[in-house]
């Protein structure tokens, strides 16, 4: 019982201490930022390095992915640099810098949402010729498919050849064709779309 009480007490004491040191920290950051506004490069450098863990934790909470997080942290730093005249040293510093980081992390998250909305996994595209058909019909479909493939624009045909027929990985296909991974994905997706329309699939 007493051990529990002790734990409780030390927990409370730790929280109180954390609050105290946070406000100390904020005062120090605020002073460093005020110096940076007057052109003190060393204060600025020290401030930004001290703030990095905070920026990273804010961005990580929104994005999770490590690369995206670091990109958002850099976006936040660049924004902070351009709007550094908006900081008023009479106000706490932490909400100011946190709001900037939140904003840039949100932007990154939205941009990622838009990207994933546009892309589809090639593995989910399914076989073009139904393997359950009798051989004669499969042959017919194959002829039709060959004709359709011939009519594709060269870049789409190439992308389809490498990614779906030779079954190379995107990285290998990219190295072979000289196209970027993104361009390959788009070309393959478009090629499949064209074929599907031409062959009357839903």
């Amino acid at each position: 019982m007493s051990a529990f009480r002790l734990q409780l007490f030390s927990g409370w004491a730790m929280t109180a201490e954390a609050v105290e040191s946070r406000s100390d920290r904020d005062m120090r950051w605020s002073a460093l930022m005020a110096a940076a506004q007057m052109g003190d490069a060393r204060a600025y450098d020290r401030l930004l390095r001290e703030c990095l863990p905070l920026l990273r934790s804010i961005c990580r909470a929104r994005l999770r992915d490590a690369t995206e997080t670091e990109d958002a942290v850099q976006d936040a730093l660049l924004t902070l640099h351009r709007v550094r005249a908006t900081y008023d040293p009479a106000r706490p510093f932490t909400p100011w810098i946190s709001a900037i980081a939140e904003r840039r992390a949100l932007d990154r998250g939205r941009a990622r949402g838009r990207r994933t909305g546009r892309e589809i996994e090639l593995d989910h595209a399914g076989p073009i010729i139904d393997p359950s058909l009798p051989p004669a019909e499969r042959g017919l479909e194959r002829a039709e498919l060959r004709a359709a493939l011939r009519d594709l624009p060269p870049s789409q045909a190439k992308a389809l050849q490498l990614a779906k027929i030779e079954e190379l990985s995107l990285a290998e296909a990219s190295a072979r064709s000289g196209l970027s991974v993104g361009a390959l994905k788009v070309a393959t997706h478009r090629a499949l779309h064209t074929l599907r329309k031409r062959l009357g699939a839903p």
């Binding site: 940076a36 490069a41 005249a85 008023d88």
Partner: peptide
């Protein structure tokens, strides 16, 4: 690297007039 970005940002820092 983010740390390099910070070095670049603080290098030659110009003073700003507070809004």
């Amino acid at each position: 690297l983010t740390e390099d970005l910070i070095s670049r940002m603080s290098h030659g820092l110009a003073p700003v007039r507070r809004l």
